[in-house]
Design a protein around this nucleic acid. Structure first.
Length: 569
RNA sequence: CGGGGUGUAGCGCAGUUGGUAGCGCACUGGUCUGGGGGACCAGGGGUCGUCGGUUCAAAUCCGAUCACCCCGACCA
């Protein structure tokens, strides 16, 4: 590629609203441009990187025997009604009607479509197992898109779906995908970790997230210092020590106290001269089965994810101030006493005695509250988020610590959730109808790019590995008025082209400084610099963007350039 | 959706008693320059987010509206 004919679109300054390094650099390098919130154009430079990542994914998917298809971006409501997700998916699903008033949505994921597809085409166990995938846009109307293509509303995802006769067979399909994911992210030179995760809206039991480890990641990962346990904070189990004793005779009389305008646990505990740990928060949640209350110790946080799973609910969110008011209590002063809804408590509440709660009255709290005496708890469970310092569940009793990560891939063992609800069946060996055992597997293509850049950059810009860089090597003539420089640059350029490198020549009429800056900003791993000074010494310069190393090579020794790149990359 | 903030040239920004809109980078033409975003000369580009109001006069004051960004619940 001749850069004089290319749309480089590099910027010296990033837009002020870009936050993360990857977002700023992708804009500065001319890879992406925003067109609406969470919706982006990919410019030529960005698309080059995109295609490379896409091809790596495609190759590894094909290697597992998965078959590529293309399913529609626009999907009809009836499939979603059939699976039951039309009602539970919420506002994230962008819905609209066609001219005949039929309802559609933009596909946020394709379990429904693919299940329908396979149900129509596959009738016999003889055609199983089968894994189908596509690389295609998705739309999720995110509440808050941010960080450029990291969390976009429209984004391209590789989504694969496996169909097996039973769980043991599905386990093999799952493992194949798991291994393919590792190879994909290794080929993109990402520093990543596979962690146990919650399966969220998609459903299913077992799931792993592939997290790229960076300080700016949106997800928090818990890891153990003694074993190889690693999980998303949201689904890290909290170990509850059953060894506790309460002398129920030590109950103190219930006491109603004034706590004017004191809402937070820290304010209340300080005012009442007690500790965070002696306060119980009453979190009112709105669920698909009505309102419920979750009791959490003052120094802990409620995990909505765990709550949803514990109660086996479809939707759980914190109630609004208005909703709370209708339950005859007040936001900030809610408490379990005389609260007319179901109450569930975190395990940490079990050993508590004479604690502090809200009084369901403005500016009032209750002291010396005790369950059993003052109110009843429907059930106890693991409802709180894990914290750094918590014990791991491993026998070695390791301690959990946090790191941050970006979720680039997610593999789910779905089971028969969709095949049952959509009655997608095949005929087994015994001539009996059975539902498919399914798995689903996603990779965010744009997010892989952003994560790679987030993990590989410096003051001069992006540093990409050869496998996903926009160009593998750029030839930089420093002086277009010097015939020798131009001649040698062209010769090297054509040699590298013939050697099947993805090579660019910066033949723009720009000063050397501009060319160096752009080559570095774009993250091109190899720069061949051809200038009068080096030619006078019969050499050209070969620079490596990743290591910063620079090497002089005899000007006619083209194969040495080829060898160095091939050996070092 | 709740809370906070911003809209002035492609990007980054200035523009406080209301008086016909400016700087740097980028862009166009030219001369020089040619190993780290070079210099000089000459240019082009704005309904000051939008609509309405106050005023002789509004980027500036008032109201509404839209868009975008940041902090909390989602997920590839």
């Amino acid at each position: 590629m001749r850069l004089s004919k290319f749309l480089l679109a590099t910027l010296r300054e990033a837009p002020s609203d870009a936050e993360t390094q990857s977002h700023k650099l992708m804009i500065r390098a001319g890879m992406i441009r925003r067109i609406a919130a969470g919706i982006y154009n990919f410019l030529p430079t960005g698309l080059r990187v995109f295609k490379k990542v896409e091809n790596i994914i495609r190759e590894e998917m094909n290697n597992t025997g998965a078959l590529e298809v293309m399913m529609p971006f626009v999907t009809p409501s009836d499939l979603w009604i059939k699976s039951g997700r039309w009602d539970i998916y919420g506002k994230e699903l962008l819905r609209f009607k066609d001219r005949a008033d039929r309802e559609f949505c933009l596909g946020p994921t394709h379990e429904e479509v693919v299940t329908d597809l396979v149900d129509r085409e596959i009738k016999s166990y003889k055609n199983l197992p089968l894994t189908i995938y596509q690389i295609q846009p998705k739309f999720r109307d995110e509440i808050r898109p941010r960080f450029g293509v990291m969390r976009a509303r429209e984004f391209v995802m590789k989504d694969a779906y496996s169909f097996d006769i039973d769980e043991p067979s599905a386990e093999i399909s799952y493992q194949k995908m798991f291994d393919a994911y590792k190879r994909i992210f290794e080929r993109c030179s990402l520093n990543f970790k596979a962690v146990e995760a919650d399966s969220g809206n998609i459903g299913g039991s077992v799931s792993h997230e592939f997290m790229v480890l960076t300080d700016t990641g949106e997800d928090v990962i818990m890891t153990c210092d003694k074993c190889d346990f690693a999980a998303n904070l949201k689904s890290t189990p909290v170990v509850f020590d059953e060894q506790y004793q309460i002398d129920r005779k030590d109950y103190l009389p219930l006491d109603l106290v004034a706590t004017p305008s004191l809402v937070s646990v820290s304010e209340v505990s300080e005012f009442l001269k007690t500790t965070f740990r002696n306060v119980v928060k009453t979190m009112i949640v709105s669920t698909n089965q009505g309102f419920e209350a979750a009791l959490i110790r003052g120094d802990h946080e409620l995990s909505i994810t765990k709550y949803k799973r514990f109660r086996e609910l479809d939707t759980v969110e914190l109630a609004t101030a208005d909703q709370i008011k209708k339950l005859n209590t007040i936001k900030g002063f809610s408490g379990p006493i005389d609260l007319d809804i179901k109450i569930y408590a975190d395990n940490a509440i079990r050993p508590m005695i004479n604690f502090v709660t809200g009084a369901n009255q403005l500016d009032k709290h209750c002291m010396n509250v005790n369950f059993g005496r003052d109110f009843n708890i429907n059930d106890f469970g693991d409802l709180r988020e894990a914290q750094p310092g918590d014990k791991c569940q491993c026998p070695e009793e390791g301690v959990l610590t946090t790191t941050r990560g970006i979720e680039v891939g997610h593999v789910f063992k779905l089971g028969r959730k969709y095949s049952d609800s959509m009655s997608a069946k095949f005929v087994d060996k015994n001539g009996k109808e059975k539902s498919f055992f399914m798995g689903c597997y996603g990779i965010g293509v744009g997010r892989v790019i952003a994560a790679a850049i987030e993990q590989n950059n410096d003051d001069n810009g992006i540093k990409l590995p050869l496998s996903i860089a926009p160009f593998e090597v750029v030839v930089i003539p420093t002086d277009l008025k010097n015939n020798d420089v131009v001649k040698f640059s062209e010769q090297i350029y054509h040699f590298l082209l013939d050697s099947k490198f993805d090579v660019a020549i910066d033949d723009r009429d720009e000063t050397p400084g501009v060319k160096f800056k752009d080559a570095e900003l774009l993250g091109i791993p190899w720069h061949v610099v051809v200038g009068p000074k080096s030619l006078a010494k019969d050499v050209v310069e070969l620079k490596n963007r990743l290591t910063g190393a620079s090497e002089e090579i005899k000007k006619n020794d083209y194969t040495k350039i080829e060898e160095t790149i091939n050996e070092t990359s």
